[in-house]
Design a protein around this nucleic acid. Structure first.
Lengths: 384, 384
DNA sequence: TCTGTGGATGAAAGCGCATTCACCCTAGGT
DNA sequence: ACCTAGGGTGAATGCGCTTTCATCCACAGA
């Protein structure tokens, strides 16, 4: 016999063989609800899946029984039977420093992740999905499969958080969308959907503003030591704008910092000022955190921004608007990125998925504020 | 026959009856891996669950087959069979304003959630769990059960995001820990584990600092219109400090704002200044966001902080340190709150759960900075 | 009165895995 | 040579649900 409780053997009678435990508060199942309300498990299931197909009176009985029992449908069983979990996933990097317990670890990457999480959660909920998140710590065990892939219907991966090989394998089984990082970075991942922001264009626009509207010539770009596709793209935008304006563009960033934190930004500012007379007219930072750090360092050095030196950031974090002088930057739609990722996943999951891999490049916007010499009021035009 | 593939009917041969689809890339299962590596499904399972119990040679064969097939173990099946999902959950409020698309929606509550998510994720990962998150939008359908409860082994709930009744029912089935909000708020939820911060003590300490060390007498507390247990606790701390110092304490907050945003903080500052001569000496805000807003508004009004008026916040968000003047506030260990919640859940889940409900009150720390008249350098002592 | 017809319900068959038990085989002890 | 242990493996069962498919029943039409 395949079924569980024989119809003629009332559940819980405790036969000598492997019967269901008699623990009073055991997790009730459809079987218990069915028995209590005098229907079959099929009907119980229907009450939840397609209430309209059950007569109102029956439905009430079932719901009452479920209520009394404290019935909570098992997601696992549901998932197994229906071959879909109703969950989407996100893998993001864990940049936390476990040693820095009391530290204000508002790392740029974390703010970034937070926003994406927020966007994905919201969109997922809108589509009836829940969101499973897992930071993939660098060099960690290939827990991705175990932790995420097997539990979700599809998921998003922030660039460079999951080994290519593993990702390639999983993406053959479930929809995966790649977040950030340029599309072509890894050819073997070409078939993935992909969402990124217009890093290059954004930095290009900002830089052009500096050279064209403010007449700046000596610009120093501060990037990242590690090879980050986003940061590199921004630098390309920087170079392009310099070239176009006839400004001698450096082949390399003036500085590459090991991390993109405020502390490093402050340090960078110090280093760039050491030169003395040939100090750059503008510090173009690869992100806001560094730029904010620089702002503070420059204040300490007695240099005025933007009069003595212009400072710009990238990202458009809330903080950028609050510092003084307010930071000119490029605003990235990070929340939207999360939302788009979910939309893409949902699209793949529902009947008519796009045949071709989709690649979305979300537009960014230059935000002109005081730190480049634009006053806040008149700087509004581009401010979304 | 109950088993799936008959041993003598090679899988995929496609009998006329309900056979497994022949779709080339169908999701491979233990059966496929077993067949391909010439072992039984039990062995395949063992390779993943207890690798040591399988001979090395066999294990290699199985793993190779799994690899070639792109096998991804089904979390649902695993969960069903093992009666545990390996996932913890978090329900947090969704305060987002869907209309404010381009807005900087860095609401206090969101920052708060972000931190808790971060803490929980980290702790969960440490314990081998994944984290499922779901914002429960106010008045939304009782999707909690469907969305979260059925898919996790246990979960945390931020206060007031889930109807008491529902929570009560679910907590009979799975461990639930309540975040924030005072323990006794709802007697029927007494049996839940609970993690909160010392709101009252924190506000008490801060206020005492203002009256004792700075000799301030006329203090205005700015709270929240809605009845929030945390905010009320803070106000109690404020009152207690006033009483003790012989300062006439208001029975009610000077102001109750509808939201705890920067904009409202700015508005509050304006309102409190309208009085003219009898303007309070200190604005004690229930959170940092409002205090920061006030700082900006006061700057606009030509009032100097802390010389003309003292401003304090609560929470210790990163921003509080960056504004000028830097904000005196009370730092909450929000990340740690998430971690403690997970630890509690894990404890309940593993063999020896505490018999009694646990209630944790995490300590907070007053951070003395410039906005109350303490200079940053000498304000360090309490700064954790 | 007989035959359709369609809505409501039940029986049964898996979904993919973990796990128990039985079995086989080899190595060690006598 | 015989027995025993014990490690390695397979057969079988069930986890709790969804989903056909078949059944039942009431009622309309003939």
């Amino acid at each position: 016999m395949c079924g569980r409780h024989a119809a003629d053997v009332p559940h819980g009678d405790g036969g000598p063989t492997h019967e269901r435990h008699r623990i009073v508060n055991a997790n009730p199942t459809v079987y218990d609800v069915a028995e209590r309300s005098g229907v079959s498990i099929a009907t119980v299931s229907r009450v939840y899946r397609s209430p309209d197909s059950v007569r109102a009176a029956t439905r009430e009985r079932v719901l009452a029984a479920a209520n009394e029992l404290g019935y909570v449908p098992s997601g696992s069983a549901r998932g197994l039977a229906s071959r879909s979990t109703g969950v989407l996933g996100l893998c993001f990097p864990d940049y936390s420093d476990p040693d820095a317990v009391g530290a204000e670890d508002d790392d740029a990457a974390m703010l970034y992740s937070d926003q994406i999480i927020r966007g994905m959660e919201r969109a997922a909920r809108r589509h009836g999905y829940a969101l499973l998140i897992a930071a993939s710590l660098e060099g960690g065990p290939e827990n991705l499969v175990a932790q995420v892939a097997g539990r979700v219907d599809g998921f998003a991966v922030m660039a460079r958080t999951v080994p290519t090989e593993e990702l390639e394998a999983i993406s053959r089984r479930r929809p995966v969308v790649m977040l950030a990082g340029p599309r072509a970075q890894d050819p073997s991942l070409d078939h993935l959907d992909h969402v990124e922001v217009a890093n290059e264009d954004g930095q290009y626009e900002l830089t052009r503003h500096l050279v064209r509207d403010h007449g700046l010539r000596r610009l120093a770009y501060v990037g990242l030591l590690d090879d980050s596709p986003d940061v590199e793209a921004r630098f390309r935008g920087f170079r392009r704008a310099c070239l176009e304006a006839g400004v001698e563009p450096a082949a390399e960033p003036a500085l590459r910092m090991p991390m993109m934190t405020r502390a490093e930004g402050a340090r960078a500012a110090g280093l760039l000022c050491e030169g003395g007379g040939d100090r750059p007219e503008a510090f173009v930072f690869a992100n806001d955190q560094m730029a904010v750090g620089a702002l503070q360092a420059l204040e300490g050095l007695g240099l005025r921004v933007p009069d003595d030196v212009v400072v710009t950031g990238f990202d458009g974090i809330p903080l950028s608007r609050l510092v003084r002088p307010a930071l000119t930057t490029v605003r990235q739609p990070m929340v939207r990125m999360g939302e788009e990722a979910v939309d893409l996943l949902v699209r793949r999951l529902s009947g008519r998925p796009p045949e071709e891999p989709v690649s979305l490049v979300l537009p960014v916007g230059v935000v002109r504020r005081a730190s480049c010499g634009c006053d806040e009021p008149q700087g509004r035009p581009t401010t979304a």
